[in-house]
Design a protein around this nucleic acid. Structure first.
Length: 701
DNA sequence: GGTGTCTCCGTTTTT
DNA sequence: CGGAGACACC
């Protein structure tokens, strides 16, 4: 056993090993990009468990996404079982990792299993509602109390601001009842026994502070993304007693816009007197790519590469996204012909909207692709309807779900609010179908209790679900298959937890909004061998052999804003660049229609040293090079006319000539000639030098 | 209730 | 710039 462990730890490099074998009370691991962060985390857990004898149940392992949590659990399980001496250790059960999960799922677990949530007015089987269910609740509370609330379509944002003590639409002529609404909402949530995502964190922090629970170890993945609430959650869990282990990369802070600290690492170190270790070795990228990435960092010297030089970074100028998409579909076909797989290739962009053109062109050119968009149960209406039906069945207090089931006109009964209110008040002509459904919902608990075994099919029949799916409709087969496979998913869970059908469904439904998208992602990822299209944000944590970053224009990457936000955009760009293992291509467009985006390459491109770059003008091989140039110039000029006032700096540096400039290496010099692409500068000590205009780091004085 | 003017905001997004 | 909503006025 000990030998096996040693062999396992010997696979690590010296820095990784130091982080794993450290036994400080609080340790922060500064894990550079591609340095084996997750491997260290897994080995740390195994080390603590087997060497230091810490039970897995007494570790809280916190991640941001379900995907990361699942990966950690899978890998710990695998490593644990491969090390385990079958005489001493039995295979690892999921139950032992019950405090491994996202911040929200661990908070929920604590609230429903450990902490006295009753003190706040909830019961242990409260359910978690997603933002859209919350919106239904908001509507109901506003209507019931006859509140005046303006800007209803931005209510979620307004509430968020309110919680931060700020106001959206601060200059409203006549105030509305937002504050009153907010306190009424709090009460309504307690009455319906539901919590929103934020409530999970807020309430668990509150109760943790008042009660004496803490785990032995708190282990945090991607610490740089912690927002203030998550930090106080860690603090409340730690309680000056639990030991801490956190990994993260300050160069990859890309979510501070939702309220993470500006310097999470410094905060952590001073708060917990934490020791810091570094993982510097990047195994992922060629040295050209890694050096380009380092040039984007303030202090990239800590990052060490081990790979060969590789292909230069290609920077391509395209007329617009459409032209680029055509070019890419050809390029991708060539790559695949030469042996690369579609899923080795990814295209990143700043905004979801940018994916539309790629989809269209790839559809027409038969390139298999997959776009990462947020998918929830709500994106499959039939499943969402069934979920609401089951929620109403297991919780008769959940009037919002009942309303949804009755109101929905595709699968439900298509009733309006007036009719539903009448039904609830026992007035007027009763709708027979509705009464029948309500009766079934009420009796569901008893129906479950008097049976030992219930199959998904029996449940399907009990509610006459076929009837609601409309057997004559075209989508009937598809819909009923979806429902049945979803029910089977629930039954797997019931079997796994060993609970009764009723309790199992209840537990599953109460948490479905926390894991909803995860269930779907497997269905969505059926097409494995496809080109992946995603936003730069979504690319974090992934890697691909070939990466194309599209639309590196000023106003897009970065979206021109204040300095602090620009720094974050640079880190976002850094994240995108460092996803590439072997080949990186970055494009910018000369014709841009988007509001706020300019026909000018991103200033970030000029930060990359020229010697790492191969700059290509797509279409320059065509005969009409000059025509194309002229067209591009016309475009830039017309855009300049339009936006003369709004954009000062970057445009101007390209208009001034015979100007005094400074170069990092050659010092001060004077511009001699300059055209669309190049600048020739005379330096006192070095003579004449010509630079590519887009990428040289000349400063105009 | 209809119409014209004014103001604010826009992007990224996990749970 | 363009859309959504509030507000003022008829």
């Amino acid at each position: 056993m000990q030998e096996k462990l040693n062999r396992e730890f010997d696979k690590l490099n010296e820095y990784q090993k130091a982080a794993v074998l450290d036994y400080s009370k609080a340790l922060m691991v500064n894990a550079h990009v591609g340095s084996g962060k997750t491997t260290v985390l897994i080995n740390k857990i195994i080390y603590l468990h087997f060497v230091k004898g810490v039970a897995l149940q007494s570790m809280a392992v916190l991640t941001f996404t379900n995907k990361a949590a699942q990966e950690i659990k899978d890998r710990v399980k695998k490593l644990h079982n491969s090390l385990g001496d079958s005489l001493v250790n039995s295979p690892l059960e999921d139950e032992e990792m019950k405090f491994f999960g996202t911040f929200h799922s661990v908070a929920r677990m604590l609230l429903s299993k450990v902490l006295p949530v009753e003190n706040l007015g909830f019961t242990k089987d409260f359910s978690v509602i997603d933002p859209e269910e919350a919106l239904e609740l908001y509507d109901r509370v506003i209507n019931e109390n006859k509140f005046t609330v303006k800007y209803r379509n931005k209510l979620h944002k307004r509430l968020e601001k309110l919680k931060q003590g700020k106001l959206l639409y601060a200059n409203m002529k006549n105030d509305d009842d937002l504050n009153e609404f907010y306190s009424a909402l709090k009460k309504a949530k307690i009455k319906s026994n539901v919590m929103e995502f934020d409530d999970l964190m807020e309430y668990s922090v509150q109760l943790l502070q008042q009660n004496s629970y803490h785990p032995e170890w708190v282990i945090i993945d991607e610490y740089q993304d912690c927002d203030k609430v998550q930090q106080s959650f860690i603090d409340a869990l730690q309680k000056e007693q639990a030991k801490l282990f956190a990994v993260g990369d300050p160069n990859q802070i890309i979510y501070s816009w939702r309220g993470s600290s500006q310097s999470p690492f410094e905060d952590f170190k001073s708060r917990y007197h934490a020791k810091e270790l570094t993982l510097p070795v990047n195994y992922r990228s060629t040295s050209n790519i890694l050096n380009a990435a380092k040039s984007l960092l303030d202090n990239g010297s800590g990052l060490i590469g081990i790979r060969e030089e590789g292909h230069p970074i290609v920077i391509k100028k395209h007329y617009n996204t459409f032209n680029e998409a055509i070019y890419l579909s050809e390029a991708i076909k060539r790559l695949v012909d030469s042996g690369l797989k579609y899923n080795d290739i990814a295209i990143f962009y700043r905004k979801q909207k940018q994916s539309e053109v790629f989809r269209e062109v790839f559809d027409n050119t038969n390139i298999p692709y997959e776009v990462s968009v947020r998918k929830t149960l709500r994106d499959i209406p039939v499943l969402f309807w069934v979920v609401r039906l089951l929620k109403a069945a297991i919780n008769n207090l959940d009037k919002d779900s009942l309303r949804y089931v009755l109101r929905d006109n595709r699968y439900g009964l298509g009733m309006n609010d007036k009719q539903i209110n009448k039904l609830f008040e026992d007035k007027g002509e009763a709708n027979k179908a509705a009464l029948n459904l309500i009766l079934k919902l009420k009796e569901f608990g008893d129906w479950c209790r008097i049976r030992d075994r219930i199959s998904p099919e029996e449940l399907f029949e009990y509610f006459d679900i076929n009837l609601y799916l409309m057997p004559t409709s075209i989508s009937f087969k598809e819909d009923s298959d979806l429902v049945l496979s979803y029910l089977k998913e629930i039954w797997n869970y019931i079997e796994f937890t060993g609970s009764t059908v009723f309790d199992g469904i209840k537990e599953f439904m109460n948490t479905s909004s926390l894991y909803g998208s995860q269930i779907l992602s497997e269905a969505v990822h059926k097409e494995q061998n496809s080109v992946k299209l995603m936003t730069l944000h979504a690319s974090k944590g992934l890697e691909f052999s070939h990466v194309y970053i599209s639309g590196a224009n000023l106003g897009n990457i970065p979206m021109a804003r204040n300095e602090e936000e620009q720094k974050e955009e640079l880190r976002l760009f850094f994240v995108g660049v460092t996803r590439a293992k072997d080949y990186l291509e970055i494009s910018y467009h000369t014709s841009v229609e988007d509001f706020g985006v300019f026909s000018v390459p991103s200033p970030f491109l000029r930060m990359i040293p020229e010697n790492l770059i191969q700059s290509e003008d797509y279409g320059s091989r065509a005969a009409s090079l000059t025509a194309l140039r002229k067209e591009i110039k016309r475009n830039i000029d017309s855009k300049k006319e339009e936006t003369k006032e709004s954009s000062e700096n970057v445009l101007e540096t390209q208009v001034i000539s015979k100007a005094l400039v400074r170069h990092d290496k050659y010092g001060e010099g004077r511009v001699i000639t300059e055209d669309d692409d190049n600048v020739t500068v005379f330096f006192e000590t070095y003579g004449e030098k010509t630079f590519s205009k887009m990428f040289s780091q000349l400063k105009y004085l």
